[in-house]
Write a protein that binds this DNA or RNA. Structure first.
Lengths: 331, 331
DNA sequence: CTGTTAGCGCGTTCAA
DNA sequence: TTGAACGCGCTAACAG
C-alpha cells in the first residue's frame, strides 16, 4: 500500500507536507507540484481509515429503511443521497425489514463505525436509539417520529394528507368513505386516520361509523383482505382511502378481481402507485418522499456540524401544489 | 470515548485481553466475565476504524447501481444485502445515475476507504475499473459484463430471455413480432435483441425486417416513443417485445392511450411489472434480479477470502422454471 | 493463557 | 513554511 511516506520520499519532502497538500493547507507551489506528481506516479490513494482514526470523524452517513424495495423509501433514499453527496458524504444503506432487531444490529454497526450521522426510519415506536444518543452520534428520524422524542424528526403532514385524499373522494361524489390504514400506534397510520376522520366529519356532518375503519399492516395482502372485509359489509362503502401505496395496491388488486374498479367505486391512495396502468379515476396523493430525505439530511448535516439545540421536529407539507406525479413514481 | 484501555483498567486485565474477549479468542471465563461487565458498565463500543486500520480489512461492501428507484436494481440490492449481512458485512449503496463520472467518484471513495469489496453495475461499457483493480480491491460486475473483462462478472442469460419472450409471443399466435431494446453497445440490450432475432428466425424461417427493431434508451419515455414509431409503420407488428421493465411500461402506456391492448396486440416484457391491472395476456419474463445479487456477492466473498483465479463469468439462467412472479415484483 | 510492545497510516502539535 | 515526533484505538507478535 502506498502511503504518504512513499510519496514524501519520492517528492523529496516530509510526510507532513504531503498530508498538508492533500488537506489544502498552504505549501509552496513547487513542493505541492512535486507531491502531486509523485502521488500520481505511485498511484497514491489516501487511506480514509487512518484519517478517520486520527480525526475521529467520518464522511459516511448511515441510512436505515424498512424496505429497500418500496418506491417510497427508495425515493427518500434518493433525496438523502443527493444532499449527502453534494456535501461530501457517502451513504450506507441498511434494510431493517421493519424488524427492531435488525435495526438494532445496524445501529450497533453504525455507532461502532462510527459514522458521521444516522438517518433512520424507525422500525417500531419502541425502537431503541440509546446506542446512538449515548455515544453522541447525530441521528435524525424520518417519516416516523423519533421514539421518545430523543432525536430530530422529519415527518410528512399526514393528517393533511389523509384529509386531502378524503376531500378528493368527496369531490368525486362519494360520501360513505372507508379508510384502511396501518397498525395502531404507528404515527403515520394514526395521523392519516385522523385526517380522514376529520374531513369525513366536516363533509358529512357526522363522524364515520366504526365499521368504516380497518387497521392492518402496511402490506399488499393487508390491503387486499381489508378491502374484502369492507366490501362484504351489509352496507359497503362507496369509496376506500388506502393509507399507503402498498395498501392501495392490495385494495386495487382485490377490487379488480371482484370486477369492481373506479369509477364504479372510489379509490384513493396515500402515496404514488408504481402501477403501469391505472384507471384515471384512482386518486393518488403524492407523498413528498424525496423531500423528506433531503430535509432530514440537511437537518443531520446541521447536527454533524455541531448544532446542539434540543430535538426538533419538521413537518413537510402535503398539499395540492405538490401533487405532481414524479416520473419516477410512475415507473 | 471509551477504549479497551478503560475497560481493561476497570476489569483489572490488560488491553490485549479485552481485545481477545471481543474477538472470540480463548480467555479464562472469570476474566471474560469481568471484561464483559466492565464493558457494559462503561458503555464500551469497539472502534471499527482502529480495528480496520490495524488489520487493514473492512466489513463493508460497496454496491454501485445506476438507479436506486428501479425495482430491478433494488431487488438486486436486496440479494446483495442478504448474503453480505449473513457473512457479517454491511453494504454501502451508491447511485451512479448511469453516469461514468459519478461512478468514478464512488469508486475513488470505495478504494480509499478501503472497502472489503465492490459490486458494480457498470454505468457504461467504458467504465474505468483501474482504480479498484490496481489497488487489489475485489470487484464483481453484475448485470453487465466487466468492461475489459478486468473482473468477475455475473450476468443473466439475456439471449435466452429474449428468445423465451419471443417464443411465448409466438405461442400466443403472433408472427410479426417487433423488438424494442436499449442502446447499441450495452450488453443486456444487445443480447436480448440477439435472442429475439434468433427465435424469430427459427419460428418464421426468415430474419426479422430491420423496421421491426427499435433501439432506444432504457426509459419509460423511450419505450413509449418506440411503440408509437412501430405502430405507425405501414405494416405494424402484431406484437412487441420490450427488453426491460421501463420500456414495457412505456409501451403499455402508449398502446393503452391508443386503445390497443392485449389480447388485441401481443406485448412481452423482459423484467417483472407491477401487474395488478394488466391484461393477463401481457407476457412477463422475470429476470433473476435477486439471484444476480446473491450470486455476485458469493463470488465477491470468495475473492475477499483470497481466491486469485483469472476473471470468471457466471451466467444466471432465465428459464420457464424461474418464472414465478415474486410478491415483491407485484407491489 | 496472559501482558508487553510495536505499529497500522495519518493529522497535528511543537520547534526550528 | 517545514519536519520530527507523537498518538488516535486497536490487534498481532512475542515472551512469559
Amino acid at each position: 500500500m502506498v502511503t504518504i511516506y512513499d510519496v514524501a520520499d519520492r517528492a523529496g519532502v516530509s510526510a507532513a507536507t504531503v498530508s498538508r497538500v492533500f488537506n489544502g493547507i498552504k505549501v509552496t507551489p513547487e513542493r505541492a507540484a512535486a507531491v502531486h506528481r509523485a502521488a500520481a506516479e505511485l498511484g497514491f490513494v489516501p487511506n480514509r481509515n487512518a484519517r478517520r482514526l486520527r480525526t475521529s470523524s467520518s464522511e459516511i452517513i448511515a441510512m436505515l429503511i424498512p424496505d429497500i424495495e418500496n418506491p417510497f423509501f427508495t425515493a427518500m433514499a434518493r433525496g438523502v443521497e443527493d444532499v449527502a453527496r453534494s456535501a461530501g458524504y457517502s451513504v450506507m444503506l441498511g434494510n431493517t425489514d421493519e424488524e427492531a432487531e435488525r435495526e438494532q444490529d445496524y445501529l450497533r454497526v453504525a455507532v461502532s463505525d462510527p459514522v458521521a450521522g444516522i438517518i433512520l426510519v424507525p422500525a417500531s415506536p419502541q425502537s431503541q436509539l440509546d446506542l446512538a444518543v449515548e455515544r453522541g452520534v447525530p441521528l435524525v428520524c424520518v417519516d416516523r417520529r423519533a421514539p421518545g422524542r430523543a432525536a430530530d424528526s422529519v415527518v410528512a403532514d399526514n393528517v393533511s394528507g389523509g384529509a386531502l385524499a378524503t376531500r378528493l373522494l368527496v369531490e368525486q361524489g362519494h360520501r360513505r368513505i372507508a379508510c384502511i390504514s396501518g397498525p395502531v400506534g404507528v404515527d403515520t397510520a394514526d395521523e392519516r386516520v385522523d385526517g380522514w376522520a376529520k374531513e369525513y366529519l366536516t363533509r358529512n356532518g357526522e363522524p364515520p361509523a366504526a365499521e368504516l375503519l380497518v387497521r392492518s399492516s402496511f402490506t399488499v395482502s393487508g390491503g387486499a383482505s381489508a378491502a374484502r372485509q369492507l366490501m362484504s359489509l351489509p352496507h359497503p362503502p362507496e369509496a376506500i382511502l388506502a393509507a399507503s401505496n402498498k395498501l392501495a395496491t392490495g385494495v386495487i388488486r382485490e377490487l379488480s378481481e371482484a370486477g369492481l374498479l373506479p369509477p364504479q367505486i372510489g379509490v384513493a391512495s396515500l402515496g404514488g402507485l408504481p402501477l403501469v396502468l391505472l384507471p384515471p379515476e384512482v386518486i393518488q396523493v403524492h407523498l413528498p418522499a424525496r423531500e423528506l430525505g433531503t430535509t432530514a439530511t440537511e437537518m443531520l448535516l446541521e447536527r454533524i456540524r455541531g448544532l446542539a439545540t434540543p430535538p426538533r421536529e419538521t413537518v413537510v407539507p402535503i398539499d395540492s401544489a405538490t401533487q405532481q406525479p414524479s416520473d419516477l413514481e410512475r415507473v
